[in-house]
Design a protein around this nucleic acid. Structure first.
Lengths: 186, 186, 186, 186
DNA sequence: CATGAATGAGGCTTCATTCAT
DNA sequence: CATGAATGAAGCCTCATTCAT
C-alpha cells in the first residue's frame, strides 16, 4: 500500500473544499493544512490557486459526466435518457444537500482575470450540450433541424433546476424541470 | 440642494460594486472610498458587510421587479406578459454584458453561514414566482391546479437562461428559453 | 511625555534597517516587529514598501545635508568649505563603519520597477551638486563657465570616495579624494 | 560538437542575470530554468547562491580587465592608457545602458555576512588599482613616491564616474571624470 | 453622529536549500 | 553525475472589524 502522491492529495482536498465551501472562501492555507502538504510543495505542482481550480474542474467533469452516463444507462430510449438527466439531478443534488453546480458556483462571483476557470465552465457546459444533442439525434422522432433547439431547451431546464434547487434547498425545481422536459420533448 | 445621506450613498456604491465586480471581490475599503464615507461611519449604519449586502439586495429587488413590470406592461395578455419576461432578460442582460443575476451570483460561492443573504435570495425568487403565478391565474386558458406547475416551469427557464447566458456570454440561451416557454404555455 | 506616533516609529526603524542591512535584505515583517506595530497599521500609513523607502530617503536627505552644512560651516572660505566635504565624509563614514551612501546602496541592486526610489536618489545627488556649484560660484578665483566643470569633478570624487571606502572598509580613499580635490580646485 | 558543461552553463546564465537584473532580484529557480539544469545538479557544483556569485565575479573580472586592456592598447603612452580608461567606461557603460559596476552593485545592498562576495569585490578593485599603478610607474614623468597617490586618485574618479552615471543614467559624469584625470596627471 | 488610527488574521506567492531516488 | 519532489521560512499585501477621540 503506497501513500498517495502530493498532487493527488491536493486536488482531492481542494475539490472538496472548493465545491463545498466555495472557491473564494477557500484559502490555500486551508488546502495545504488539510492535505498535509507544505506550501512550497503545493506551488511545485500548481502555478497558482487558479490552476488548482482548473484541475479540480477537469477532474470533476470526468466524474460528473461519468455518473450521469451511469445513471441514464438504465433507460431504454435516447429520449428517456435525456429525461433521465433529471433523475440524476435529484440523486446527485439530494446527496450534496443542494450545493449546486460546481461550475456555476465558481464563475458567478469570480474576479475578471480568471480566464482559465471561466474557460473550463464553458467547456463543461458545451460538452453537456453536445451530449444532449447526440442523444436526441438518435431519436427518429425529431427532425434534425429541431434537435438543436430541443437540446438547448433541455440544457436550460437543467441549469435552471440546479440553481433554483440550490437557492431553495428543495427538490421541487428539479421535478418541475422534468415535467417541462417531458412536455418539450413530446 | 441637499447632500445625499451616508447610508444612501453606501448602498448605492455597494450595489454597483457588488453586482459588477462581485461580493467577495469588493472590499469595505473600496466601498467607503468610492462612497466618500469614513469607515466607522459605515459601521454605524451597518453591523457588517453582510448587512450591506442585504440592503443591496432589498434595493435591487424593488428596482428589478419594477423594470420587469415596466417592460411587460406593453404586452396585451397575461400570457404574453409572462412570455415577455424573456424580452426583459434580453434587454437587461445585454446591457450589463451578461453579468448574470445578482442573487444567484452572491449565493453560489458563499459559505453556509450567511443566512441573511441567502434569505434575501429565497425571498426574491419567491416573489418572482408569485408574480408569475398571479399572471397565469388571470388567464382563463389554464385550470387553477395547473398554474402552479406552469409557473414553476417558467421560473426554471428564467433561471436557466440567466445563468447559461452568463457562462456563455451570449444571448441564445434566452432565446431558447423563450421558445420553450411559448411551447409550455400553449 | 507622549508616545511616539506609529508612522514616526516605522520611518525610524525602517531607516535604520534599510541603511544598515540593505533594502532588499529588510523585510516588512522585521520592520513592524522592531517598530512594534501591526502589519495593517503600517499599510495604513504607507501604500507599499517602496513608499517607506521614499520617506526614509527624504528624511535622510534633510539630515545628511544638515550635517554636511554643520561640518563645513566652521571653514573660512567657500573653497575650503568644498574641500571640507571630505572631512565630513571621514567623520560620517567612520562613524557608520563605512556602510556607504544610502542612496547609492539602495539603487544599485534594485528591481526596475521602483521608480520613486530611483527618483529620490537622482534628486539627492542633484541637490548635492547644486550645493557644490553654489559654493564655488562664490569664489572669485573661478570663472563662471568653469564652475560647472569643477563642481562636477568634485562630486565625482565624493561619490568615488564613498563607494571605494565602503568596498575597502578603509578611509584612505577619502584622504586620496581630498588631495585630488585640492589639486583640482587650485 | 560538445555540449557545454553544466557548471559553465550555470555561470554564464547567472552572470547575465546577476549583472542585468541584480543579485537579490535573481532567484535560483530562474537560473536553473534558463540554464536548463536540474536544481540538485546545481547544488552539486555550487554550495550556495553566494558561491555562484563568487564565480560570476571571478569570470567577470577576467572579461572586464581583458576588455579594458584591449581598449587602452591602442593608446601610445602609459599616461594615455590611464586616461583611456574613461574612454573604456563610456564605451562599456553606454552599451549596458549605465547598469553600473557588477562589484559595486552586488555589495552595496548586501548584508554583512556575505564575506566571499565582498572579498571578490575587494580583490577586483585592488587588481584594478595595481593595474593603474603599474602603468603610472612606467611614466618617467612621475616620481615613484607620488605614483601611489596619483593612481588612487584615478581609481576614485573611475568609481565615482561609474556610480554617478548609473544614478543619472547619463554619460557626463564619465566625461567630467576624464577631464579631472587629465588635470591630475599633468 | 462622524472620524482616522490601529488591529489580528489571513490572502497568495517565492525564497534558498535538502532529500530520496 | 543527474534529477524532480518536498520543505520551512519568509516575501509583500489586504481583509473585515473595533477603538479612542
Amino acid at each position: 500500500m503506497k501513500k498517495k502522491g502530493v498532487k493527488e492529495r491536493i486536488i482531492e482536498t481542494a475539490s472538496d473544499l472548493f465545491y463545498n465551501q466555495g472557491y473564494s472562501q477557500t484559502g490555500i492555507n486551508q488546502i495545504i493544512a488539510e492535505a498535509g502538504v507544505a506550501k512550497a510543495s503545493m506551488y511545485q505542482h500548481f502555478r497558482s490557486k487558479e490552476d488548482i481550480a482548473v484541475e479540480y474542474l477537469v477532474a470533476r467533469h470526468g466524474m460528473w459526466m461519468g455518473k450521469l452516463n451511469d445513471c441514464v444507462s438504465r433507460k431504454s430510449t435516447s429520449k428517456n435518457k435525456v429525461i433521465g438527466c433529471f433523475d440524476y439531478l435529484i440523486e446527485w443534488l439530494t446527496e450534496v444537500n443542494f450545493r449546486g453546480c460546481g461550475w456555476q458556483n465558481i464563475i458567478t462571483d469570480l474576479p475578471e482575470e480568471n480566464h482559465k476557470i471561466k474557460a473550463q465552465a464553458v467547456y463543461h457546459k458545451n460538452e453537456l450540450r453536445k451530449w444532449i444533442h447526440n442523444l436526441l439525434l438518435q431519436e427518429e422522432q425529431y427532425k434534425e433541424e429541431e434537435v438543436l433547439d430541443l437540446g438547448d431547451q433541455v440544457l436550460i431546464l437543467i441549469e435552471g433546476a440546479i440553481i433554483l434547487s440550490q437557492i431553495q434547498k428543495e427538490s421541487w425545481p428539479i421535478e418541475s424541470a422534468k415535467k417541462a422536459c417531458i412536455k418539450i420533448l413530446t
